[in-house]
Structures are given as C-alpha cells and as structure tokens.
Design a protein around this nucleic acid. Structure first.
Length: 450
DNA sequence: TCTGGGGTCCTAGGACCC
DNA sequence: TCTGGGGTCCTAGGACCC
C-alpha cells in the first residue's frame, strides 16, 4: 500500500544503556507565502499595501492572485478580469499583469531562508515548501516557536508574509497551514501535533471537506451527497468503502488525516516527463505564418527547459485552438503528435517537427486563440540510444550550438537568439499591459529609493 | 475587445501474448 | 458438449495540484 510509519531516517540516538530508542515521530511543516504574487508586488511598492490588488494571469485574462481586500469583495480565483472591471473601478482595485521573473526569483529567496532551518525540504510549488522538522523543533523550543522564527526571518529577509502549519503527515501539515491562514487566533502558525484530540476535532468540524488536500471539486460534491461534509466527517468515514468508490488516492488521504504518513518528502525534484509551452494570443489569429511563429517560439521555450534537465525528446505534440468562449464562432481543436526519427534536444530539429505538425492540423476559415507544444517521450540525454544513421559530429555541433544559444538567452533575455521561424513581429504576443519592473533580476529595473 | 498555463497520478479497457 | 485465463503494455480520460 505504501503506507507505513513514513520514517526512514538513520538518525538513532543512543540512550545511556546503548539501547536504540525509537526515533521521534515524523513532523512535517508546510510553509507558504500568503497571496504570493500580490505579496511579491507589495514587497517592492509600498503604495500597494492595504489597498485591493489583483495579479492577472498571462494575457491579463483572469485574476490569479488576490489581496485579502479583494477576496473580501467576493472576487473568486480565476475570475475573468474583463467581467470585473466595473467592480474594480468602484473599489479602486489595482490590477497588475503577472511578472513571473520577479515571482520566480522571490520564490528562490524564500527557499534559501527556509533551508537554513531544515535542509530536509521539498519545494512543492512556487510558494509552498514542506520540511521535515522532528529533529530540529527543539532547537527553537517547540514547533510553534520554530514557525514564528521562520515567519519573522522570511519577512525580514524577503519582505514576504508566510504562514506555517505543522502535522504528523503532509496532509495534516497542509490542514494546519490552512487553519493558520484563516484564523487570526493562530497568528500565522498552527501546530496540530501539540493539540488535544478534542481541540483538533473542533477545528476539523469547522472546515469543509473540500479544503482537504487531494479532495477537489468533483470528489467534494460526491462526498457531500454521502453526508461527508467536514474534514472530521472524512477522517471518521469508512476507509474501505471510500477506497472502493474513489480509489487509492482517497484511501491515502484519509490515512494521512488519521496520522499515518503515506506521502514522503520528495527532496529531489524528478525530471519532467513532459514539457509544455503554450499561450493564448493577444488577439485572434487566422494566418498560418503567424501561428507558426508562435509555435516556433514555444518550441524554443520548451526546448530550453528540456536541455536544462539534460533530457531529449522522442516526439513533439503541437496543437491549435479556437476561442471556446465565443460560441457563435466555428470551433476547432487540432493536435498532432509528431514522432522524431531520432531523439533530440535541438531547438531547430524540434521546431521543424512542430511546424510539420502545424501544417497538418491547420485549417483555414477559423479564428485561432491559442497554440502550444508539448515535448514528449523524454529521456536522459546520457542514456540516449545510438541509431543507425548516427552522425557523432553533427551531434556534437548541435550540442555546442545549443549551449551557446542558452547562454546568450540566459544573459540577455529569452529570444535574443532565435530561429527565423519564431519571427520578428510577434503578432501573437500576449497582452501584459501593467507589468511591474523585474526589480530583482534586471539591472535596468532595480527599485529606486526616494 | 475581453476567459491562464503548467504538471502528476490513477484507472479502466483494449490489444496482444502465451 | 460447448467458447480459458493470466500477465503486460499502452492509451485515453478523469481526477487532482498550484
């Protein structure tokens, strides 16, 4: 089943009698940044403090991060921005385009601070990390004190507000973090491992089952019909019948809620099995040439990531889509997997394949809204099989050229050197009307203190 | 005018093999 | 009289995450 104590550390302490005593039960911490993108923006612009702020998705499409003031107005995650403009005007909401360069850099800074607390860390997402802490909380007194120490150090060093949750499993740590975020009484830190059962159950009764990590909208709705409404209801439900109805993932979730650790810390980020790059266009496109330029650009983006993890791809998937929200328009979604005769990480080879695919799926008479590529059948470049028509000299050359390309683009910005296929006009470019400066990664955009 | 962009895991069912 | 059964691999689709 994969469920066990979840503890495999070799750190045994010896007692005075040289008898190994059981290692401390695992304690996971989950630390995440509140309203991450908004907080990044606020860290560099004090005028954004205490006013309603949203950060929009690519293409300025949806609200993907909201300040508390905006959440209080009832604006939902993912709400289409154009529908909110009136409301925004009324309440003076400031809307910013997303600035992923900034967020990525800030994310790294947070992780650097957290690593000082525990090297046993899994960077789970751009704004969340899990840590193993059972062997270190005593250095701070207890878990709660450690949580506050993390909070204050991250705040001081990065300007970002974080919350911390502690639990004996990852799912419980997530839940603790949720409590810390939503209930002022915790002051940003919640330790479930140091709570009576009554107290814990009290909190579990207050939170809806859909908030549990691993329980999404669909499953929450099904659970509700079974009268499983709260976190506690789920914890106390019959695990066997849940497994039958929902599968092994649900079984693990319930075990984790009950304190049996099934999910380990993943400290080593595994290589991606597929790499995707896609964008909606800033406006609708009909012209194959222009769409081709966008496809070529996305190939370059994906290929750069591919080389960064030292992999090669065996196939390229390319797709185009019309605007599904315009019901009056003729709709078409085309996609095609183009197998490569030989695995490759060369942007030029991958581009050729993608454009062959585009040629096959493109239909005239439609207005297109989006295109993208996915690199598939990835494997480590080092494990690559020799093929019949191998030409070692070509391969060496290709590797060198790609190295130079990546080097230049890293230093001078993506797309500084690109294939001709990616074009120069960028008719497809997304809207990003209100992007803040790349304060931390570009000399020309450093914040200025006045 | 206008609606994001990535990923993973699991399961069921079909093809195929012996 | 009567139509096996088990194993593996692959794919598509569904669910979840941020």
């Amino acid at each position: 089943m994969g469920c066990g104590s979840g503890f495999s550390s070799s750190l045994y302490q010896l007692s005075g009698f040289d008898v190994p005593i059981a290692p401390a039960a695992p304690v996971f911490a989950l630390v995440d940044v509140n309203n991450f993108y908004v907080s990044c923006e606020r860290a560099f612009d004090p005028r954004l403090a205490r006013v309603p702020v949203v950060v929009l998705s690519n293409n300025d499409g949806c609200a993907v991060a909201r300040s508390n003031e905006v959440k209080a107005l009832g604006i939902k995650m993912g709400a289409p921005w154009f529908k909110l403009k009136d409301l925004a005007q009324q309440h003076g909401i400031i809307a910013l385009s997303s600035n992923y360069t900034l967020y990525g850099d800030m994310s790294n800074r947070v992780v650097m601070v957290l690593k000082q607390f525990s090297p046993d860390i899994e960077v789970y997402s751009i704004d969340e990390s899990f840590l193993h802490v059972e062997t270190i909380t005593h250095l701070h007194g207890n878990a709660k004190a450690m949580g506050h120490a993390m909070r204050s150090r991250v705040r001081t060093w990065t300007g970002l507000p974080v919350c911390a949750g502690f639990g004996s499993t990852k799912t419980l740590a997530k839940f603790a973090n949720h409590l810390a975020k939503k209930n002022a009484v915790f002051d940003g830190v919640c330790d479930l491992t140091n709570m009576t059962n009554e107290e814990r159950n009290g909190w579990m009764t207050k939170v809806a089952v859909g908030e549990v990590w691993g329980v999404g909208r669909r499953i929450a709705a099904r659970l509700e019909t079974m009268n499983v409404l709260t976190v506690l209801d789920l914890l106390q439900a019959d695990i066997k019948s849940l497994r039958q109805q929902f599968g092994v993932v649900m079984e693990r979730t319930v075990s984790e809620l009950r304190g049996t650790s099934c999910l380990e810390l993943e400290e080593i980020t595994p290589d991606k099995q597929q790499i995707m790059a896609s964008r909606s266009f800033g406006s609708m496109l009909t012209n194959k040439q222009q769409i081709g330029e966008a496809v070529a650009w996305h190939v370059a983006t994906a290929a750069e990531k591919l080389r960064a993890q030292a992999s090669v791809a065996g196939a390229v998937y390319v797709f185009v889509q019309t605007n599904r929200f315009r019901e009056q328009d003729a709709q078409y979604n085309g996609g095609l997997v183009v197998p490569l005769p030989d695995v490759s990480d060369d942007t030029r080879t991958l581009t050729t394949a993608a454009l062959i695919g585009l040629n096959r799926i493109y239909r005239t008479g439609y207005s297109y809204k989006k295109c993208g590529v996915m690199l598939m059948e990835l494997e480590q470049k080092a494990n690559r099989q020799e093929t019949l028509f191998d030409n070692p000299r070509h391969r060496e050359q290709s590797t060198k050229i790609m190295e130079v390309l990546d080097h230049i683009n890293q230093n001078w910005g993506r797309g500084t050197v690109r294939t001709a296929a990616a074009g120069f006009t960028q008719q497809w470019a997304m809207r990003s009307q209100n992007r803040t400066p790349r304060y931390t990664t570009n000399w020309l955009e450093l914040p200025v203190a006045r």
